[in-house]
Simulated assay, not measured.
Amino acid sequence: MDNFLLGPAEIRQLADKLDVSPTKKLGQNFLHDPNTVRMIVAAAGLEDGSGQHVIEVGPGLGSLTLALLDEAEKVTAVEIDPRLAKQLPETIAQRAPHLSNKLTIIGRDALTITADDIDNPTALVANLPYNVSVPVLLHLLETFPTITRVLVMVQAEVADRLAAQPGTKIYGVPSVKASFYGNVRKAGNIGKNVFWPAPKIDSGLVRIDCTRPYPPELRTTVFPIVDAAFLQRRKTLRAALAGHYGSAAQAEHALTTAGIDPTLRGEKLSVNDYVTLAQAGH
C-alpha cells in the first residue's frame, strides 16, 4: 500500500497546484506522514469486518483517503472546500486508479449531512476539522445508526475529554454524549510534525465501538439533562437541574426516584445514571 500514499513533497505539490493555503477557519492541517496514516487505519480496525462503508470528513488532499480506499469496500468523503473536493478524485485516479470506483465525494458541510445523503455507512474514520470536531462527531453518530466503529483524530485536549471517566476534572458533556453511543477510549497520540502546516497543538486519536446500548429515541430526553447538569459545574444536581425540571424540589424528586443523590455534581454521574434519570422522569 505504501507506494501510493502521499508524503510531504506530494502534499506541497498538490497544495501549490491548487493554490491552497490551509485556512484556520476550516481547521485545515494536511497530514503528510504515511506512517501516521497507516497507524490511523490500523487503529480503526476496519479489517474486523468486510464490506465496510467508511465516512471520511475533511479528506483535504487525500492522505488518509488513499489508505482507507485500500482497506474499505466504499469511502464517502465529505469535503466543504470546493477546490479540494474537485481535486480528490484526480489524486486517487493518478495514484491508485484501481481504487477510484470505491470513492464517492460530497461537497458539503458535514453538519448539514442527512440520512438520505449517505447509504448505510458502517464506520467514521477522519482527521476531523478541529473547530467543529465534537459537533460533527455527535451529528454523524445520531444521523447514521448503522455506524459501528469510529476512529477520529481531534485536538489532544478534546480526545482526553471525549474519553474521560466520571469523577475526573475533564469529564463533561462530550464525554457523556459520546459514551451514549458505546465504548469510548483514547487510541493514540499524534505529534505536530506529521502535518503541514504544523499546528500549535498535539492531536489524539479517539476510538468508539458503537454498541448503541440505549434506544436512540432517549437521546432527546437524556442530552438536555446532560447539558443542564454541566452548565454550572460547581452546582449540585438539585440546583443545576432546577431549571430543567421546573424547580429544585422537582429536580430533587426526579433524582431521588432515579436513586441518585441530589447533592452530587454532574461530573459524578455516568451515562447510565443520566439515562436512568431521564427514564425516571417520564
Rank of each mutant, 00 (worst) to 15 (best):
I201Q: 09
H244G: 06
L231Q: 07
K192V: 14
L128E: 15
L124E: 03
N127C: 01
I260R: 14
T104F: 12
T220G: 14
R238Q: 15
E157A: 07
F4M: 08
G107P: 03
K177I: 11
T122F: 01
H53Q: 03
G58D: 04
V271I: 05
D273F: 03
R161C: 07
A240D: 06
L231S: 12
A15L: 10
R185S: 14
S175C: 01
A198K: 14
A278N: 02
S100I: 06
V206C: 01
K24N: 12
L5V: 15
D109V: 02
G172K: 12
D109L: 01
G49N: 13
K17N: 13
G266M: 03
S203L: 06
N189P: 00
T211Y: 00
Q232R: 03
T143P: 00
V275E: 05
P34H: 00
R108K: 06
L140F: 03
E90K: 10
L255W: 09
D160N: 08
K235N: 08
A9D: 08
V271L: 05
T104V: 14
L137T: 13
D227I: 00
V136Q: 14
A72G: 04
I55R: 09
G204K: 05
D116M: 05
P8N: 05
M1W: 08
Y130S: 10
I113W: 10
P145C: 09
D117V: 00
I147H: 02
V194H: 06
K192F: 11
L264M: 14
D261E: 07
P166E: 09
H139S: 03
D81Q: 05
A115F: 07
